[in-house]
Design a protein around this nucleic acid. Structure first.
Lengths: 341, 341
DNA sequence: CTTGCTTGTACTCATTTTGAGCAAAAGCAA
DNA sequence: TTGCTTTTGCTCAAAATGAGTACAAGCAAG
């Protein structure tokens, strides 16, 4: 077998430790829930964290296996769908407060889906919109956007440094705000969760931004820092944002919702789950047309009477789609009008 | 600032070394080229490798920066677009031949795009279809598929173990072959580069599969192992497959082709570049309708006479699209008929 | 300097897909 | 029965898509 062609002289680079972070998602009662580790003593100064654990290549052949192992240990949860998100060297630029020169940590973010699971010592499920209140448009445009975010972003836009290196960057801040938050004429794209969070971070509007020396100008001027969603430890809210973006995108071209659904469900329940994740409403009749035409579900013959109106047929996921064609997802297009729930 | 909530008792996990692997792509003369490191002495037994280098968190703040640094050093190339692909613990299951228990390597794959660049000591540009001959459908279905791959896959399908754990896995192999290679009735999806490579790997049909003890049954029975594309060192061909999949997908929803184009170009040149990457042909008139309607390009007023027929207008990329809407890509749908080139 | 060859560019047209609304069906409760 | 609620079936216009036809504009050979 051939030897490595490039010389490996610089192979004795700083050894690092690998950390696996998991955004574990569940949907219950129309709410997307995320598993977080919370301070035992209810200390409000201690922020929530995503569960994480080390990766030991000696014990586990792959990182996926390692992830499943410590999640099982820490939380008793057996993960279903698992997908790698992104790897940050030294937790990316969202560095933690201060660490010795000794331990360098590379963290790998994961998205994992699971069906209904109860709480367990030390961990709890939280609606992910508590961390991202501006991402839930199911009851119309969240007013935290107009009340808090936009004014603060305006300030940030107007503080744009006069001369920047890059020629084209004039009005760059304004453009980014318009694109990500869809203000004046722009369109809200529910997939841009990460872009929006990064914008808020750069603008110094989220609590986490205070840590790495970024001047939280706006907040300080006002004396009272606005709280834009609950903060999380390290760069965990960023990882959660990545997970949300990825999941919202994937939903549309791969049948991942079903990983979050019980065995049987009504079409409307399925729709609600999708909407919970996307944070928008879709047109009901078109939704069922889509799902049925795509052959994603099949009737069970049984009915659900818990609807409050006409009983609904219970469906189940057609696993066969995997063997038929490159399995599609729910091409959910948010409905403009809120007419048809 | 808050301390980590989960106990970090197991923090002294095996330290590892981080390797960054880059799939650096360029398009020239209708060929997608990939930068590889080749044996100095022309030794045929030494396989090509992707350029790679270590990541040292002490020297570089982020992995992207580290990547750019050693690429510049090793190859004099200044990378433009860079995107992280995937991280393998211990190079994933495609382990290298044998390594001491000491050094555990985690490798992070990257996709990078660059405009025309010349060769340089130790590295050279190769058409990526040399590694994946079955992926180029521009001159119709490549006959390596019918001549070599399908017969071998048939054998593999028929060798499917009679009783497997999973209930549903009867005929699993047949289904996978049908889905990924689009045989009998299936549809060829040019994005499934990785899935196809993994299938061939599992079936023991690529040279790399021999290394990790997988019985290369078919090849051995026949005495002459068929060569399905050029092999690469380690799991580099897998990384390249990942890069191709990602790039082919991204092309359709983000304006990444332009990272590979010269300053000005004709619409047909743009089309050829897209086709080279996708490995399929698209309908010419519809292509220009798409590109112009999407506002991706603008006229320069100048003409190109190098067309061989009527001179073509020269266009340039409209950078403003980035500031207008979530910048779109070329929703290239392969044309069924090969009528309109 | 006209004919033929090649490629660019402008339109057209049928089919599908998409977004949105109307209306009947089927349960429950007053 | 009469409302009220939700499910489900269907229609319809607008937009997007796939595939042509036709003509324009250069070059080269005769």
């Amino acid at each position: 077998m051939p030897p490595a062609p490039t010389d490996t002289s610089s192979r004795h680079a700083q050894p690092v430790v690998i950390d696996l972070n998991a955004a574990i998602v569940q949907v219950a009662d129309d709410s997307p829930l995320i598993l977080v580790v919370r301070p035992e003593n209810g200390d409000a100064d201690v922020w929530d964290a995503l569960p994480f654990g080390p990766f030991d290549p000696l014990q586990h052949r792959t990182m996926d296996i390692g992830l499943r192992a410590w999640v099982r240990e820490q939380t008793q949860i057996e993960l279903g769908y698992v997908e790698q998100l992104y790897t940050f060297g030294d937790r990316g630029r969202h560095a933690l407060e201060k660490m010795g020169d000794g331990d360098h940590i590379v963290s790998v973010g994961y998205l994992a889906l699971t069906r209904g699971n109860d709480e367990h010592a030390g961990v709890s499920w939280r609606d992910w919109y508590q961390y991202f209140p501006w991402e839930d448009w199911r009851d119309g445009r969240p007013d935290i956007i107009d009340r808090v975010i936009l004014p603060l972003l305006q300030e940030w836009v107007s503080r744009e440094p006069a001369s920047t290196n890059e020629e084209l960057s004039r009005g760059r801040r304004r453009d980014r705000a318009r694109l990500t938050f869809g203000i004046d004429g722009g369109h809200w794209d529910e997939e841009n969760v990460l872009e929006r969070f990064e914008l808020l971070y750069e603008a110094g509007l989220v609590r986490e931004a205070g840590r790495d020396g970024r001047p939280n100008a706006v907040a300080h001027e006002r004396g009272s820092a606005p709280q834009l969603g609950l903060p999380m430890q390290f760069d965990h809210r960023r990882i959660l944002a990545t997970a949300m973006s990825r999941l919202r995108a994937k939903l549309k071209y791969r049948p991942v919702v079903f990983e979050l659904m019980p065995d049987t469900f009504t079409l409307f329940e399925l729709q609600r789950a999708g909407e919970a994740l996307l944070g928008v409403h879709v047109h009901k009749q078109n939704f069922r047309r889509l799902v049925e035409k795509a052959g994603l579900v099949e009737k069970t013959g049984r009915m659900s009477t818990a609807t409050g109106g006409r009983p609904a047929e219970l469906f189940r996921f057609r696993r066969e789609v995997f063997n038929e064609r490159p399995a599609p997802g729910l091409k959910l297009a948010p409905s403009r009008s809120r007419a048809n729930t």
